[in-house]
């Protein structure tokens, strides 16, 4: 459950942008800091509302927390994110949170982890992936399957190609939708690649995030491979405004994505109306 520390959960704290990393042509990771630390502690998969004050607020998954800063990988999709992509290091932003339940890091202990991501969907997964590496002994084998439209659109390339494959008992599989000259890796959609790799459901938790169409086919593929609904976890997205389960719009059935989600297992999702 959320553990917002501020007095008024709708009023942001001010943070400074200390580093900006260009991930892809339309994704940047913003490192933000408050008084040489973090504005609040976040669990993997939790959300925070980031505001560029004169422009707007947007809800984002925190893609990683270090002792002295939070990281947000943000794709340019609208008014607010357009403006956000134009800022420089040193810019002050508002953040409030953390919101939402986050990934079930405790429940997954002792399990093999299968992460399946598409596009910017790797941002929330990354917080869980890095958490697993940080607490490496708590988790079994780690498999990461990730795809994007093109090579340029792959997020977190350094980690993807350099760092994560070096981790103990870890396999990283990367694919892109269409063949390109500079790419000699796998070509094809994520769900198809997943079926090709055919991971063993035994003692495994699958965590997936990506565009709705990818998720749909990944879920079908996992089911076919014998993953039970309880073994499959995803994180949802809806338009959000308050983050505290009051403003109404992010409901799917009687659940609020900002408060009860964004992370659900498939068994929970199947009980909800099919609006996800």
């Amino acid at each position: 459950m959320s553990n917002c520390s501020c007095e008024n959960p709708l009023i942001p704290q001010i943070v400074e942008v200390i580093k900006i990393v260009d991930e892809t042509p339309d994704v940047k990771t913003f490192y933000v800091q408050k008084d040489n630390g973090v504005p609040f502690d976040v669990m993997p998969g939790q959300l925070a509302m980031v505001s560029l004050l004169p422009v707007g607020e947007g809800m984002f998954s925190v893609s990683w927390q270090e002792d002295d800063h939070l990281q947000f990988a943000i794709k340019r999709v609208g008014v607010m994110t357009d403006e956000l992509h134009a800022i420089d290091v040193g810019q002050r932003l508002g953040v409030r949170g953390p919101y939402g339940n986050g990934f079930p890091v405790e429940k997954c202990k002792g399990q093999d982890m299968l992460f399946i991501g598409g596009g910017i969907g790797l941002a929330p997964l990354r917080s869980f992936i890095k958490y697993c590496f940080k607490h490496r002994e708590d988790y079994g084998k780690i498999t990461i399957i990730y795809g994007s439209r093109s090579y340029d659109d792959l997020c977190f390339k350094e980690e993807l190609f350099e760092k994560w494959p070096q981790e103990k008992d870890t396999q990283v599989y990367v694919t892109i939708d269409n063949a390109e000259e500079k790419w000699d890796g796998h070509v094809g959609y994520v769900p198809a690649y997943l079926e090709e790799l055919n991971p063993d459901p035994q003692n495994t938790v699958a965590v997936t995030c990506g565009p709705p169409i990818m998720i749909k086919f990944v879920l079908q593929a996992l089911e076919k491979m014998g993953f039970s609904d309880e073994q499959v976890i995803t994180t949802l997205e809806m338009r959000m405004k308050c983050g505290i389960g009051k403003c109404g719009r992010c409901n799917i059935g009687s659940e609020y994505i900002c408060l009860d989600g964004p992370v659900f297992d498939l068994a929970q999702l199947r009980k909800l109306p099919p609006e996800w």
Binding site: M1, S2, E7, N8, P9, L10, I244, G245, K246, L259
Partner: peptide, 10 residues
């Protein structure tokens, strides 16, 4: 506004 985790201060 008063229950389910958060209190709406406004």
């Amino acid at each position: 506004f008063f229950t389910r985790t958060f209190v709406d201060e406004f």
